[in-house]
Computed example of a mutant assay.
Amino acid sequence: MKNVGTAPQAAGAPSNPPGSGVVPLHADGRTRREVARLLLEQGPVSAASVAEVLGLSPTAVRRHIDALVADGEATSREAPRRGQRGRGRPAKLFLLTEPGRARFGHAYDDLAVAALRFLAEQGGEEAVRAFAQRRVDALVDRHRAAVVAQGGPADRAKALAAALTREGYAASSRHVGAGEQLCQHHCPVAHVAAEFPQFCETETAAFADLLGTHVQRLATIARGDAACTTHVPVTVGDTQQAHPVTGAGHSPRPEAGRTARTPDGGKPA
């Protein structure tokens, strides 16, 4: 990303004075976050107002706002009309979108964990499992028809990956060895699942039922892995009947003589 303003300063030259509009390269990310913070706290707000608060030029601020808009983290609306409008483009005000607000974090995860702890205290582990099961059933039912319409586990895994992506899991499926590896690169409930593994267990069992074969969870974001990775066997002997996975640590063992590995070649946690 290029600097805004003049060429880089020579060694020993004084730093850019406040209000110069020059944003050093190393400060780019920090400045964009400050721009986003003002859109969060004061939006809808004009680029000129943000520039005045931060002591930057409107051009520099617009560059950051344009980047936030391009990433879907900010949006604009026309400023309210006051009096007779003159020539030129209507003034724009900017504010963050929901994805933009998410960069500042939510208390939702903490609230969910607290609620599940209370549920566990009142109804025990089975109450948490029942809640997790209802959640995954609702997710699966929305896409069951589209997934089971596919021919076999490999095609179903690809359809499931597409369905999970639509649900916000950023999923993909690729052929590896004797099967497919279904990878979920994002998990909306990872923070909760780290304390309540029932969420991962019920999800794995639901995948087995939906794909029509036993599956093996190799890695999870909740355990600190880079992605949630599920091995889906596609050999002839593995396509006859689904074998749901139940209980923590009770996934089917890897094929004899083979070590389960994650997509990057490492052993699962």
Results as ranks from 00 to 15, higher is better:
residue 73 E to K: 08
residue 192 V to H: 00
residue 193 A to R: 12
residue 140 V to F: 10
residue 199 F to G: 13
residue 202 T to N: 15
residue 31 T to N: 02
residue 5 G to H: 02
residue 190 A to Q: 15
residue 45 V to H: 00
residue 5 G to W: 02
residue 173 S to P: 04
residue 3 N to E: 15
residue 114 A to W: 03
residue 108 Y to L: 15
residue 257 G to T: 01
residue 161 A to W: 07
residue 120 A to C: 09
residue 204 T to V: 14
residue 232 V to F: 03
residue 268 P to N: 05
residue 138 A to E: 12
residue 80 P to V: 05
residue 255 E to R: 12
residue 64 H to D: 10
residue 99 P to F: 07
residue 212 G to N: 00
residue 53 V to S: 09
residue 9 Q to W: 12
residue 208 A to P: 01
residue 43 G to M: 02
residue 247 G to I: 13
residue 28 D to I: 14
residue 31 T to S: 05
residue 167 E to S: 11
residue 84 Q to V: 15
residue 96 L to N: 03
residue 253 R to V: 08
residue 190 A to H: 15
residue 249 G to K: 06
residue 117 R to H: 06
residue 155 D to L: 03
residue 194 A to D: 12
residue 206 A to M: 03
residue 102 A to F: 11
residue 260 A to T: 09
residue 206 A to E: 12
residue 241 Q to G: 15
residue 28 D to E: 14
residue 107 A to G: 07
residue 136 V to A: 03
residue 175 H to N: 12
residue 96 L to Y: 00
residue 31 T to L: 02
residue 118 F to Q: 11
residue 131 F to R: 11
residue 44 P to S: 03
residue 199 F to I: 08
residue 242 A to T: 02
residue 144 R to S: 05
residue 82 R to M: 13
residue 69 V to E: 15
residue 260 A to H: 13
residue 203 E to W: 14
residue 50 V to P: 01
residue 211 L to Y: 01
residue 95 L to S: 15
residue 237 G to M: 02
residue 51 A to F: 00
residue 215 V to I: 04
residue 4 V to G: 11
residue 133 Q to Y: 08
residue 105 G to R: 06
residue 171 A to L: 04
residue 181 Q to D: 15
residue 245 V to M: 06
residue 172 S to W: 04
residue 177 G to D: 14
residue 220 T to L: 03
residue 110 D to L: 07
residue 190 A to T: 14
residue 216 Q to I: 13
residue 254 P to M: 10
residue 106 H to K: 14
residue 48 A to C: 01
residue 208 A to L: 00
residue 128 V to K: 04
residue 186 H to K: 10
residue 155 D to P: 06
residue 216 Q to C: 06
residue 175 H to Y: 06
residue 264 D to V: 03
residue 194 A to Y: 04
residue 238 D to N: 14
residue 168 G to P: 13
residue 113 V to P: 04
